[in-house]
């Protein structure tokens, strides 16, 4: 089950915490990867740490022209196929709405939502020709629940969900599925440094009683990327220990 041998995948934000776990999970199931990220050195180091014949393609997702070029570059580097696209890269620019600068709004929407659209639009072409494709975008529990200080981020993540549903309907007849994975609180450098009181308050809201890990997200992405998940499209798989049941 969930064998990805013979499939190729482009993963954005692949050198980050969740992104690297997703990339390792896909590679572990046999997929050949094009990993992308904004920091070329960090990206290359990550690529070299993966076993197998993977490629690194750096890209600044706030640069529209660079984003439009990313899929063609990845397809060329992967030998002419793209089976899986994982829109994982995301940024935050938290601020109360009343204090939020135009630039903080624009930057988050551009990287988290617009870049994902541009990448899916570009990937749809080869996927249509292949009559096969799996698109998985990483959204967030806050796209459903909201979060104070994150009007921009919550909007971008909710936007991914709506966009994915529209694209799922457009592309279903070509055997291309478009889904989202919505992580809850995931263990990271940021959550590790939270004060103890804040951490226990956080855990009190999670029925599973623990934070999630990157591997939990990687496993969800592997499922939605697999051949076996071909009848699942337009969905959001929530991976959050039960903290929000939607």
């Amino acid at each position: 089950m969930f064998d990805l041998t013979g499939m190729t995948a482009l993963v954005t934000g692949a050198s980050g915490g969740i992104g690297s776990a997703i990339a390792r999970a896909l590679a572990g199931q046999g997929a050949r990867l094009a990993v992308s990220g904004s920091n070329a050195d960090k990206l290359e180091a990550f690529r070299a740490s993966l076993n197998g014949d993977h490629v690194a393609v750096a890209c600044d997702l706030s640069d529209a022209a660079a984003v439009d070029a990313l899929v063609p570059q990845a397809v060329a580097a992967l030998g002419g196929r793209i089976d899986i696209l994982v829109n994982n890269a995301g940024v935050t620019r938290d601020n109360l709405a009343m204090r939020m600068k135009d630039d903080e709004w624009d930057q988050v929407i551009r990287v988290n939502l617009e870049a994902a659209f541009r990448l899916i639009r570009a990937a749809a072409k080869p996927m249509m020709k292949q009559r096969f494709g799996r698109v998985v975008s990483i959204t967030s529990v806050v796209g459903q629940t909201g979060n104070p200080g994150q009007a921009n981020y919550a909007a971008s993540k909710a936007g991914l969900v709506g966009m994915s549903k529209a694209l799922a309907q457009e592309l279903a007849s070509r055997n291309i599925t478009v889904n989202c994975v919505a992580p809850g609180f995931i263990r990271s450098a940021m959550t590790d440094t939270l004060p103890e009181a804040q951490k226990s308050a956080l855990l009190g809201r999670i029925p599973a009683g623990d934070l999630g890990t990157g591997d939990d997200i990687g496993a969800a992405v592997v499922y939605l990327a697999s051949r076996e998940a071909g009848y699942v499209t337009g969905q959001t798989l929530h991976v959050n220990g039960g903290m929000a049941m939607i």
């Binding site: 072409k125 249509m128 020709k129 457009e170 592309l171 007849s173």
Partner: peptide, 11 residues
């Protein structure tokens, strides 16, 4: 044809 077929034909 549907609209997606047209896109494919053009490609």
């Amino acid at each position: 044809a549907d609209s997606l077929d047209i896109v494919e034909l053009v490609m």
